[in-house]
């Protein structure tokens, strides 16, 4: 049996299991509103900020474990003539190396390669993990609901965290490259000042301050749209899946819905998220 056939067999088995499991139960429509089980106290101690989304935390840990174990096993025995696992890892890294060096240049691209590549694999696995069937998701009362495998990126906390992380990476590297003065001037000196003190400079100062405020709002908006895009796409896909699954009583179509919204949209959105992070960094870093 060829490798291609094996891959299709695995995907087919996953989809079949998902289909069979979905026959047994029925998604509760009201669960969409509160998909994330929360805990408010640990050993009697109250958690600040309104509790923890325990299911998001557990799924994030699951993906972290998969990524760490994968990076260990894929690079365990490095040889000049790569084996299968090493070839996969090399393809992945070299693809992102090309991407980074194209956008950021040879020297800086290498510095941002680990950040970008890790971000992509993490977001990709986060988006894809929802395809894995988890029967406790459907059958009520067998397992606690917070054990369900669902996408961590369906929670705004995760994506907003990523967005804020990208914001700080971009801006700190901007300060590092341009110096603090140049970094501030980027926002607050839209029109360069003349020499000396005159009326024209005062007008320019007022204009520059106004433009600076607009620039700051624009930066905040960038981060918000960056994180809301991923969140909205994944959550919207999940809601559409639940609604259509309920309409057609789980006959055959959920497989293709999972294929489209889970695998395709997940991959595209992970790529877009990573590329936008890279573009934001390159805007701050490149002259």
């Amino acid at each position: 049996m060829s490798n291609k056939k094996k891959v299709f067999l695995v995907i087919g088995i996953i989809f079949t299991v998902e289909f069979i499991i979905s026959l047994f139960g029925e998604y509760d429509m009201s669960q969409i509103a509160a998909p994330f089980a929360k805990i408010h106290t640990v050993f009697g101690v109250k958690i600040p900020f309104n509790g923890i989304n325990i299911s998001t935390v557990l799924n994030t840990w699951l993906i972290m474990a998969v990524v760490i174990a994968g990076s260990y096993f894929f690079t365990r025995r490095l040889t000049p003539i790569p084996g299968r696992l090493q070839a996969i890892a090399e393809t992945y890294v070299s693809a992102f190396d090309t991407l980074c060096t194209e956008v950021l240049g040879k020297k800086r691209g290498r510095k941002f390669l680990p950040f970008v590549a890790t971000l992509f694999i993490f977001v990709l696995l986060s988006n894809w993990v929802g395809v894995i069937p988890s029967f406790w998701h459907v059958v009520d009362g067998v397992f606690p609901h917070w054990l369900a495998i669902e996408e961590p990126t369906r929670d705004l906390n995760t994506t907003l965290g990523f967005g804020i992380m990208c914001f700080f990476v971009a801006h700190i590297s901007g300060i590092y490259v341009r110096g603090f003065k140049g970094y501030v001037a980027e926002y607050f000196v839209t029109m360069p000042y003349d020499k000396g003190f005159n009326g024209g400079n005062i007008g320019k100062f007022i204009f520059n301050m106004f433009m600076g405020l607009l620039n700051i709002v624009g930066e905040i908006g960038k981060t918000i749209s960056h994180s809301f895009r991923l969140f909205g796409n994944i959550l919207g896909g999940a809601i559409i899946m639940v609604v259509i699954c309920n309409l057609i009583r789980f006959i055959v179509l959920p497989v293709f819905l999972n294929g489209f919204f889970g695998l395709f949209v997940g991959a595209v959105q992970a790529f877009v998220f990573t590329m936008l992070a890279l573009v934001y960094v390159s805007v701050m870093v490149n002259e």
Binding site: S225, G232, L235, V268, M275
Partner: peptide
Amino acid sequence: MLIGQAVSESTGIYSLVIAL
């Protein structure tokens, strides 16, 4: 194209979030 589409999509995502 994908990047540009993702950027122009954000208004739709905003309305989705508001609707939710």
